[in-house]
Every structure is written in C-alpha cells, then in structure tokens.
C-alpha cells in the first residue's frame, strides 16, 4: 500500500520537535547548530511531501526546498564562523558560560 501523506508529516513533525529540543537543551553551540539543521530538514521533508502530493505543473514546494538548501548552507557557514570567533575570545563553546550580554 502506498504511504499516506500523514505519515510523512508525522515524521517531519517529530523530527522538528527533536530539533527544537536539541536547540533548547544542549550546551555545546555546535550541537545546537546541528539541531537547527535537523529542524530545517524536517521542514524540507514536509514541503516536498506536500509538493509531491498536490503536484502541479511547477512543483513550487520543491523549488522552495532548493532555496532552503542554499540558505541553510550559508547559515551553517556563518554560524560556524561566529562560533570560532567566540572560541578565540574565550576557549569555550558552552552557551551557558557566554553571558557578557547580561543586563
């Protein structure tokens, strides 16, 4: 039997939830970045699923996904640059220890 759309959406949802949990719970900045990628993947999955289910001539959902790829890549690059910069300042990537913005 074919896989119902709801299943893909369910998977996407769970993955998104996992990613959110990771962002909020892990201390290491790089791991947080990884969790963000999980979230992005979840959305990609949902978009492609909808796009393929309600396929129209131009598959706009998938087009959007392609652009999300681009943005995600750029974001990882810049995010890591920031993390490395911060690491140079104080040799930690622990987000709980970076509190200079207090007040």
């Amino acid at each position: 039997m074919a896989v119902p759309l709801g299943a893909f959406i369910a998977v996407s949802a769970v993955l998104f939830f996992i990613g959110t949990a990771g962002v909020l719970v892990r201390r290491n900045a790089v791991v947080i970045l990884m969790s963000v990628e999980l979230m992005l993947n979840a959305t990609n999955l949902a978009l492609v699923a909808f796009s393929r289910r309600f396929a129209s001539i131009d598959e706009r959902g998938s087009v959007f996904v392609v652009f999300i790829f681009v943005v995600a890549a750029a974001e990882v690059a810049v995010g890591l640059a920031i993390i490395l910069s911060a690491y140079r300042n104080r040799p930690t990537v622990d987000v709980d220890e970076i509190r200079q913005m207090k007040g």
């Binding site: 039997m1 074919a2 896989v3 119902p4 759309l5 709801g6 299943a7 893909f8 959406i9 369910a10 996407s12 949802a13 769970v14 699923a49 393929r52 289910r53 396929a55 001539i57 131009d58 598959e59 706009r60 998938s62 087009v63 392609v66």
Partner: peptide, 25 residues
C-alpha cells in the same frame, strides 16, 4: 497536526521532479 492528515491519500505523484523543477527554477 500530524494526526489531522492521517487519512490523506498516498503521497508521491507520478513522474520525476527534474523537469518541473528545472522549468520552475
């Protein structure tokens, strides 16, 4: 939200996605 979609029909359309994708982009 996911539960709402449980009765949807199968996902996955016919044909590949290369041509529509290329045409759009």
């Amino acid at each position: 939200v996911a539960f709402e979609f449980r009765d949807s029909a199968a996902a996955g359309g016919s044909g590949g996605d290369l041509v529509p994708l290329a045409t759009s982009i």
